[in-house]
Design a protein around this nucleic acid. Structure first.
Length: 430
DNA sequence: TGACGTCAAGATCCG
DNA sequence: CGGATCTTGACGTCA
């Protein structure tokens, strides 16, 4: 059983996917982007393996405009060496990857051009995974598509077009219930009829119920039957909703107690679990460490190193509690640790806490920073305390310093993860 | 015709 | 000029 995350790796430098506008997509630009994105992918794979993350979704943006005529680069040949090397790391590390074409890849459309585009897009995804040298257990996930006023006809069109796909695509394709149109019952029927493995998505299921087939654990058990010998372990998608946003929106982070409740109810053998959550790899590590059969204290201490300034700015008291919790090196209090982290994150940042944390982080630079940088920092922290400078501007200054002075420990700190700062200022209530 | 979802690029503003 | 902030793009379906 593996737990993983989708597409983006937060808090790890130089893992961003680069893209461009279609009007700027000439051969030179596209080659730059492909080369940069493959480097980024390799960094993500390295990071995942360092952190025990064995499941990962590769962004469809990895090769920009791959299925469009604007991109005529023979990337699978020109970058064969890099692709093979990344694939070798994935295989030898025991990692499983997947890809998920977006909501605009619609195989069952009545529009012939849309279908042709969808087929090209699926061919691209299969070629990418083939170029990594990975077997058919590394999947491509797709939704059934639109309803067009007649679901059974639309499913029939999906089936016909599925059957006509290239064998290399068919070997990898799996289908998933969506939150609006096709519920798990309909997807499961389609999967059984066509021998296509089915991915159960719990949040889509909440939004779009199917039939009376019992609870989500029953559906997961039914979906298990669609996974054949060459398909690898069953996969599911797990996410929690963000109560501050409209229904169906993914949560900022995974609530560990709710996750463990779900996890413990899973029948054996447990499926691979792809988390769909805003804080991506950060929640993936949380769930990996909290379900580890024999946890290593070192891994927990590395996590604490990444969380500490973030926790400190929210609550000095919880910061102190975690330090005490982690003193006993013979224990492995992963769940207790994450409960405290979550509790800290629910506390609104006090000005004093933010100043305190920023001052701690500044401590890394006080010997190496120039006079100008020092004056700059003092100006920012003073401005923040007076309410003139926003907190994220102060943090941005510190992040620039960390980059310039190559403080790799700080660069991996969750203190700088923009998502957590944004969440404090963004209110999107429905 | 706009909302949907997503992220970074691109555009623009500001000091 | 560099940094901060706002807008656009790329896709297809559906109300």
């Amino acid at each position: 059983m593996s737990i993983g995350y989708a597409c983006l790796t937060l808090g790890v430098p130089f893992t961003d996917m680069k893209k461009c506008l279609i009007k700027n997509a000439d051969e030179v630009r596209l080659n730059q982007l492909i080369a940069a994105n493959l480097c980024a992918l390799e960094r993500m794979v390295d990071y995942n393996l360092r952190n025990g993350i064995k499941l990962f979704r590769i962004s469809s943006d990895i090769i920009p405009f791959a299925s469009s005529p604007v991109n005529s680069i023979r990337w699978s040949e020109d970058y064969a060496f890099q692709l093979a090397e990344i694939g070798r790391k994935i295989r030898t590390g025991g990692m499983r990857v997947s890809m998920h074409p977006g909501q605009y890849t619609v195989l069952n459309s009545p529009n012939a051009q849309t279908v042709e585009n969808a087929i090209r897009e699926l061919d691209y995804h299969a070629l990418f995974l083939d170029s990594l040298g990975l077997d058919a257990s590394h999947k491509i996930i797709l939704h059934l598509g639109g309803a067009y006023g007649d679901k059974s006809l639309a499913i029939k069109r999906f089936t016909e077009r599925y059957q006509a796909l290239d064998d290399r695509v068919k070997a990898r394709l799996v289908i998933e219930n969506d939150d609006k149109i096709y519920n798990i019952q309909e997807v499961l029927e389609t999967g059984l009829d066509n021998r296509i493995p089915v991915v159960f998505d719990n949040l889509h299921h909440q939004a779009n119920h199917g039939g009376d087939g019992g609870g989500e654990q029953n559906w997961i058990a039914e979906c298990a039957k669609t996974w054949g010998r060459d398909d690898g372990r069953q996969k599911i998608h797990y996410s929690q909703s963000n109560p501050r946003k409209k229904v169906g929106a993914h949560s900022l982070s995974i609530d560990i107690d709710a996750f463990l409740h779900f996890y413990e109810n899973l029948a054996l053998p447990k499926p691979d679990i792809m988390l769909e959550v805003k804080d991506k790899n950060i929640s993936a590590i949380k769930c990996v460490l909290c379900t580890a059969e024999k946890g290593e204290m070192g891994a927990l201490e590395r996590e604490w190193g990444r969380y500490k300034y973030l926790v400190l700015e929210h609550s000095q008291a919880i910061y102190n509690q975690i330090r005490i919790l982690l003193k006993d090196k013979s224990a492995y209090p992963a769940v207790a640790f994450y409960r405290l982290v979550e509790e800290a994150m629910r506390i609104h940042i006090p000005v004093g806490g933010a100043v305190n944390a920023a001052t701690h982080v500044w401590g890394y630079f006080k010997d190496c920073a120039s006079q100008r940088q020092k004056a700059d920092f003092l100006k920012y922290i003073d401005g923040y305390a007076k309410g003139i400078v926003p907190l994220f501007s102060l943090k941005h200054k510190l992040l620039s310093l960390a980059l310039e002075h190559k403080q790799t420990y700080l660069l991996e700190s969750y203190y700088f993860v923009k998502l957590y700062s944004d969440a404090l200022t963004t209110v999107d209530r429905d």
